[in-house]
Simulated assay, not measured.
Amino acid sequence: MNQQLSAAPQHTSSAPAATGDSPSAVLAVPPAPPAEAAALLRAALARHTDVSDVAADLATGTPGFTLVDSRSTAAWDQGHVPGAVHLPAASIRAPAARLLDPARPVVTYCWGPGCDGATRAALALAERGFRVKEMLGGFEYWVREGFPYDTADGRRTTAPDPLTAPVRDADDCGC
């Protein structure tokens, strides 16, 4: 196939290309129209937050939400976000009503991206009338970002885990 390159775009329609019209793996399925994309992205942000935003809000001392660690007791004891409430996903239903304020949004987290404990905890809470979000990346990314965490023996650790800490030139990822 012989293609000629020109400075002017060949396709002037504002409609996205049909599936399969692009040699690009990224564009094989065209992007959603802007209004549809905005609605989907807004819905995603209504359900998710990230560790940097949680840390920034916790640093204010009045974050406006309750942070829930949905991992096991053994995982909690190894390390957890300071100020989090421990409610393991497997048994969250009974203690949630007495430990959480239903008028206050809840942010759940679990071990990391490969764990669905935060999702299960958020579902259980949402089914009981709580407004919920999940913290993307979970405790693993909290540690990777170098944020402090507490352990069951009362230690506060602020150094990132050297095996999982990212190499970065600045403290802010820019997102």
Rank of each mutant, 00 (worst) to 15 (best):
4 Q>A: 14
8 A>S: 10
10 Q>C: 08
10 Q>E: 06
13 S>L: 02
14 S>K: 08
16 P>S: 03
16 P>I: 02
20 G>W: 02
22 S>F: 04
22 S>I: 10
23 P>F: 13
26 V>L: 10
28 A>C: 13
30 P>C: 08
31 P>Q: 04
32 A>S: 07
33 P>V: 15
33 P>D: 13
34 P>M: 04
38 A>M: 15
38 A>K: 07
39 A>D: 09
41 L>M: 14
43 A>H: 13
43 A>Q: 12
47 R>C: 09
48 H>P: 08
49 T>L: 01
50 D>C: 07
55 A>Y: 13
56 A>V: 06
59 A>S: 06
59 A>E: 10
60 T>M: 07
60 T>I: 07
63 P>Y: 14
64 G>S: 03
67 L>T: 12
67 L>F: 09
71 R>C: 05
74 A>Q: 03
75 A>N: 08
78 Q>C: 07
79 G>M: 02
80 H>Y: 03
82 P>G: 02
82 P>S: 00
82 P>R: 02
83 G>L: 03
83 G>P: 04
88 P>A: 04
90 A>F: 11
90 A>Y: 10
91 S>F: 15
93 R>F: 01
95 P>D: 00
102 P>V: 05
104 R>Y: 04
106 V>S: 06
106 V>W: 01
107 V>I: 15
113 P>C: 12
113 P>H: 12
120 R>D: 08
123 L>K: 15
124 A>T: 06
126 A>T: 15
127 E>H: 13
127 E>V: 10
130 F>I: 01
130 F>D: 04
131 R>L: 05
131 R>A: 08
132 V>Y: 03
133 K>E: 03
138 G>M: 00
139 F>C: 04
140 E>L: 06
141 Y>A: 11
141 Y>T: 11
143 V>C: 06
144 R>C: 01
146 G>M: 05
148 P>M: 10
149 Y>P: 04
150 D>E: 13
152 A>C: 11
160 P>T: 03
160 P>Q: 05
164 T>G: 11
164 T>I: 14
165 A>C: 06
166 P>C: 08
167 V>P: 00
170 A>N: 10
171 D>Y: 14
174 G>C: 01
